[in-house]
């Protein structure tokens, strides 16, 4: 089954009087468990593609399906619920909640999907990601790498089938980025979880099965 499919998806923005086609009749297929990296110049529409996939934005034309569900045809609450239960999101700036501990930040994803929280599950995942010792700390007390690992834990804890990652190593130094990429790759493989990652980093793209480049609103396989 296809994890994510874009069918002739067009997204345009008006810039002044002219229309800019960010995505133009774009086609994309991500199989279950498949990891795809999307690269491209700044402003090429990578993030837009990711937001469309997450159901946080809607296409002007075309159809987006996640595990057979036409996300673009759901209403807002349904999309939110769908996103919460089937997808995990990883951001460049981690987007952790300052007032919550690492544990609570991870737990948040379960709470939002109305799942019972199993402390052992969280601890196990944290152990897997190497952040068990810092679970009771707040984001301000964590390093960038630790924060991103917490964010990855948050994206995985509710067992999504699709991870959407937006420059997950963009704010990290090379060594830390490599560590984070490593645990991310490991975790995804273990769970047979598909991922669409938007990145500029070749190293990040390297953990993916396939690399596509977004150019003039369309995807082309990387040379």
């Amino acid at each position: 089954m296809t994890a994510l499919a874009f069918r002739s998806v067009t997204r345009q923005y008006s810039a002044g009087s002219s229309q800019v086609h960010v995505l133009d009749q774009l086609e994309l297929d991500v199989a279950e468990g498949q990891r795809i990296a999307i690269m491209g110049a700044s402003g090429s529409g990578k993030s837009t593609l990711l937001h469309l996939a997450a159901g946080m934005d809607l296409p002007d034309e075309g159809r987006i399906e996640v595990f057979g569900t036409a996300v673009s045809e759901l209403d807002e609450p349904e999309r939110t619920r769908f996103r919460a239960s089937r997808m995990g999101l990883v951001f460049q700036d981690y987007n952790l909640i300052d007032s919550l501990t690492a544990f609570e930040n991870i737990e948040l994803a379960l709470w939002l999907t109305d799942q019972a929280v199993s402390k052992s599950e969280v601890v196990a995942l944290a152990g897997e990601l190497g952040i068990e010792p810092v679970l009771d700390r707040r984001p301000g007390q964590l390093s960038g790498g630790e924060q991103q690992r917490v964010a990855i834990a948050r994206a995985l804890i509710h067992k999504p089938n699709l991870i959407l990652a937006d420059e997950p190593t963009g704010s990290l130094d090379q060594d830390t980025a490599n560590d984070v990429l490593h645990v991310l790759q490991q975790s995804l493989q273990d769970r047979q979880c598909a991922m669409v990652m938007v990145t500029h980093s070749d190293a990040a793209a390297a953990i993916c099965d396939q690399i596509q480049v977004l150019d003039h609103g369309r995807l082309v396989p990387a040379a």
Binding site: R81, R83, L89, L96, I97
Partner: peptide, 16 residues
Amino acid sequence: AREYATLRALGLSPQG
């Protein structure tokens, strides 16, 4: 705003 947006992105509905 960012915190609220994150919550929304993670799956908190507008009503929520």
